[in-house]
Simulated assay, not measured.
Amino acid sequence: MKILIVEDEVGISNFLKQGLEEEGYEISLASNGFEGLELATNNQFDLILLDWMLPKLPGIEVCKGIREKNKTIPILFLTAKDTVQETIEGLKGGANDYIKKPFSFEELLERIKIHFRISDGDEILTLSDIKVDLTKHQIFKDEKEVFLTQREFELLVYLIQNKGKVCTRTQIIEDVWDIHFEYDTGVIDVFMNAIRKKLNLSKEDDCIKTIRGVGYIAN
């Protein structure tokens, strides 16, 4: 698996490079936003670790630029920013996840593994007029392809695989995010809003319902 690290602090980038290479990943480095965007859009990577505060071009703009070219590659923000508004800004900008500095390498490694995880189950999943091809990592609605981010894809697959069951926000955080500690479950709503928008679903749609104060259910 090839990972691009866009980080201007040499100590952090070298530490991550060494640790991830020891885990078997192939690592490329960029030290500013322009360089990171150029590498990300002109090369094939499986995941991007992106610092928010970068010289020449802010991480959020790098993220948006990458998303214009690649809708599915997982992008994880490495950031000291941790307010809800900043988190939402990053997610709306196309990020799949974020990890707050300072962080443990073990936590980062687990987050990366989550995004590389292959979904179990049938190769083709269906929900109303939505079809999900797990093998090809494609989603179709009314036979028209819809492009979701990796995290959005994983969340939609989880709801479909648990069709007919109420999935609480806590369950989603634990089963999809693989996070078993206190975490702001409000980010799930951000992802669900994005999924509904891309699939042209209303909050009242029977396909995926919001259970107020609890979570979601796919029917």
Rank of each mutant, 00 (worst) to 15 (best):
G65N: 03
L108K: 05
K56W: 07
F116N: 13
M1N: 09
T87P: 00
G186M: 12
I195W: 07
F116T: 12
L148Y: 08
D82K: 08
Y216Q: 06
E89S: 15
A194E: 14
I12M: 10
I179K: 10
K17T: 12
E61S: 06
L20T: 03
F140V: 06
C167F: 01
P74F: 13
L47K: 11
T149W: 02
E106M: 05
V146L: 04
Q161T: 11
T170L: 04
V166N: 04
K209D: 01
D142R: 12
E26H: 13
D82R: 05
K141G: 13
I3P: 03
I118C: 00
E61V: 04
Y98R: 03
G93S: 08
N162L: 00
A194V: 05
K56M: 15
K100R: 08
N200I: 10
D206R: 07
V176N: 00
V214Y: 07
E110P: 00
K113F: 02
I130R: 10
T210A: 12
Y158L: 04
I99W: 08
E174H: 05
T72N: 12
N219S: 13
I27T: 10
E38S: 07
L155Y: 02
A40P: 11
M192I: 14
L49K: 07
K136R: 14
L54Q: 08
A95P: 13
A194T: 09
L109A: 06
E182K: 14
R151C: 07
Y183A: 12
I217D: 05
P74C: 14
L37T: 01
Q138T: 14
E89P: 04
G65P: 03
G121Q: 01
W52F: 15
I12W: 04
S104Y: 03
T135C: 02
M53V: 14
I75W: 08
Y183R: 15
I3F: 04
H115C: 03
I3G: 02
I188H: 06
N200D: 13
Q44V: 14
S13T: 14
